[in-house]
Write a protein that binds this DNA or RNA. Structure first.
Lengths: 334, 334
DNA sequence: ACTGCTAACGAAAACGTTTACGTTGAGTTT
DNA sequence: AAACTCAACGTAAACGTTTTCGTTAGCAGT
């Protein structure tokens, strides 16, 4: 059996209270007994039991993170950032893959509650009422990442999707494009769907370019839907000279569609993506895209969560900066 | 304060033992009291405290997973599989990003030990002596994924890298290629490095093709090293007609190098990758590659770990099947 | 010599469960 | 009617910590 604090105390001829004091370096013991105890600990290979500690402290030094899809590049970058600061500040992270499935979300929330996590990060995806109530019942800090609390009030960290889409479209316009299509995300997605097409439309109207229905097609952010979206776009609007895709994956799908149809990017078609995931860099040709600082957002989310544990009033929203990173898929045709 | 089992017991006029029995459905109560207690639980919104439970059960229903880089596509696919079955079997997973850094690995192992995790999955990366000892001291199941225990004896799950590389090379040979270069991984990586070049060399010799030094260059599995590796290859061996890259990322790097130099894939150069990550599908043109069933491997790893918890003697090694998935980057030149 | 103070500890309660064991009462057997 | 059985509970110990209160001894101050 692994040695407990009791074993250490016995072996060192002190009380468990003293051992505890030494471990948490509280005052109340002589230098002499400290070294004696430390030696015993070393010899026995004692390590404290965080479970017992958590039971009494009511702190588990653990946070839970809910993702719709852990294996997406988007999520994994975020996770990386979250894990980084969580670890730096002595917390572990439990990952949950919700599949955006309400039932699973509720199950995970129950598990996290039972496991007494100290906080929860909820990534991307609208927050329904039921999970919201569950979250509230847990009475622990929550922060949303890349999504909005919508009817509720919870701290969130995201970029301004509408503005970012506006910038992406403007980027295209300023390169001389006038016939600009859009491969949008899920149509009724109030977070990453609508705002991006709104930004796109706003940019067009601000530059006195009419926005046309057939110039917009809807996908699901995935690669395949980018491919089919592009083909649909050509049917509906054959004269487009540039396209803004609401995700890198869809942009790469568009790239492939172009490749298949023998249209050269960027000479015959300019493409701009959204996310700046790893594939953007690795696409052929390298994809111009708007960059969300995912790693940073993860770090900030964890940081925010942990400071909220100390002082809940320090919760606040963070609008993160985006940038459009220019690579090789949009051509200046002015 | 959140209600405890004690509150429930009091409100229902029974002892905590009875409540506990009902919750864990053990025998020893009437149907009548059960419904009474269940009603109280419902009303109070009681949820058991897994920490207290873990303290006495010595089971936390939690496993730890160590990755060199959580955000790589390789890791995130695995994580997805691991999380899937872990969750299915009522376990949570704590992720750890080691950066392949010995110090961090040891720190994580200590944390996982203190948190009393029920098992550990160690992903990809050689297992040094110090972590091995720490793992042994924890006395819990461990399984390795995509790596070998080497001097030690631990259950592992991986594909046969050498054979897979052999097949990839053979695939090229049977398409008529004779001048085949290789962009290998880290030179002294005994897991994903050497075995793959050995498979490559074996295939060549089996087909009476001489293996030449300058036909092999070394990278670090990353995208950039694929790009530079390809250029180096052209310098050293301008007449190669095909190249086998030890990772998809490097293969895509090679693709970009080809694109930059105006050499057409697959007409002028055939490329085959390794991993079948998402980028393989999304590359332009879509990349022919050897597929490791990462998601399956994750699932199997979790499954194995959990069965080992019940019966440690059921540990065994799993060699997973690979397949070469043919897409559009290799040309038949027979 | 007595009081008062402090450093250095120890005893024990508490955290929220599970579980071994004991108790009760009604029903069954002899 | 006494003895026995069994279902339906309750009591209390245990898990490994932290933390609140003591308690003790030494020493300064008067």
């Amino acid at each position: 059996m692994k040695p407990t604090i009791k074993d250490v105390a016995k072996a060192a001829n002190v009380s468990i209270a003293t051992v505890s004091r030494i471990l948490n370096n509280l005052p109340g013991y002589s230098e002499e007994t400290k070294t004696k105890v430390m030696n015993v600990i070393e010899e026995m290979g004692y390590q404290p039991n965080a479970i017992a500690r958590g039971l009494i402290n009511k702190r588990t030094q653990t946070i839970g993170v809910l993702f719709p899809d852990v294996s997406s590049m988007f999520s994994s970058k975020l996770l990386n950032g979250i894990e980084y600061t969580a670890n730096r500040l002595n917390h572990s992270v439990i990952v949950c893959n919700t599949d955006s499935n309400g039932k699973r979300i509720m199950k995970y929330l129950q598990v996290l509650r039972e496991k007494q996590v100290d906080g929860i990060i909820f990534v991307s995806g609208a927050l329904q009422e039921e999970p919201y109530r569950a979250l509230m019942a847990m009475q622990i800090p929550v922060v949303l990442v890349a999504t909005l609390p919508h009817p509720y009030d919870l701290p969130y960290i995201k970029v301004d999707d509408s503005k970012a889409a506006y910038s992406a479209t403007t980027f295209l316009i300023e390169k001389g494009h006038r016939h600009i299509g859009m491969i949008a995300g899920t149509k009724d997605d109030m977070i990453a769907g609508r705002p991006r097409v709104e930004g796109y439309m706003q940019a067009l109207t601000d530059y006195d370019i009419p926005v046309r229905e057939p110039y917009i097609v809807y996908g699901d952010f995935g690669y395949r839907s980018g491919l089919s979206g592009m083909e649909q776009l050509w049917e509906q609007a054959p004269n487009i000279t540039a396209v803004f895709a609401a995700s890198d994956e869809m942009a790469v799908g568009a790239l492939l569609a172009a490749h298949k149809h023998g249209v050269h990017v960027p000479d015959e078609l300019s493409v701009i993506g959204y996310d700046n995931t790893q594939i953007a860099e690795m696409a052929i040709p390298p994809l111009t895209t708007v960059s969300q600082p995912l790693h940073e957002m993860g770090k900030e989310a964890a940081q925010m969560l942990l400071t909220m544990m100390e002082d809940p009033s320090r919760a606040k929203n963070l609008i993160m900066p985006y940038t459009v990173v220019e690579r090789e898929t949009v051509k200046d045709i002015t």
